[in-house]
Design a protein around this nucleic acid. Structure first.
Length: 160
DNA sequence: TCTGCGTTTCCTGCTT
DNA sequence: GAAGCAGGAAACGCAG
């Protein structure tokens, strides 16, 4: 099942595949993002050794790259725990409830993704909260906890 | 050029 | 009282 996630859902989604830079490149590029390299060594080292490779990006068109959204980025992190380095974790896999464990780390990763070194969790969470309106996410009355809504897809194990 | 979408940014109020 | 989170409003960048 997770194989299908990896190959059909995770990889085709281009959240990790910057058109010009792989994760390995991103997290080893101190010139591009020196602060993150030092502040979250555990996360960056995890990503450096993760299975996300630039070669995985080969089949991704520029169009698909640009269609990558924040919620898909989050979803794919959740679906690939070996790559998210404990930044996100499932609270209730069946219901799509997840928790942001390392808010700063998540913001940094998203900032890397968007090439925005000024990204913060405050801003990222604001974007996540907009998904409440569209039904992609549902509000959970707990801090740092979110739930995939009816309009989110690809996160359910049996619906991949 | 215009429009819509998906954020990003700033700000304020609320909660812990 | 301080820090962090949530939501409103406006701006921004990009694709069609």
């Amino acid at each position: 099942m997770l194989d299908s996630v990896t190959h059909n859902t995770f990889l085709p989604n281009v959240s990790f595949c910057d058109p010009l830079m792989s994760w390995t490149d991103l997290f080893s590029n101190e010139e591009y993002y020196p602060a993150f390299e030092h502040q979250t060594d555990a996360v960056s080292s995890c990503l450096k050794t993760s299975g996300i490779k630039s070669q995985d990006c080969h089949s991704h068109s520029r169009t698909s790259l640009q269609s990558s959204h924040l919620w898909e980025f989050v979803r794919d992190l959740l679906l690939s725990p070996e790559e998210n380095c404990g930044i996100l974790e499932w609270e209730d896999r069946e219901q799509g409830i997840f928790r942001v464990v390392k808010s700063e780390g998540l913001a940094k990763m998203w900032g890397q993704r968007k090439r925005n070194d000024r990204m913060t969790y405050e801003k990222l969470s604001r974007a996540l909260r907009y998904y409440y309106k569209t039904g992609i996410l549902e509000r959970v009355d707990r801090r740092l906890v979110y739930k995939f809504g009816k309009n989110a897809h690809g996160w359910q194990e049996d619906k991949l």
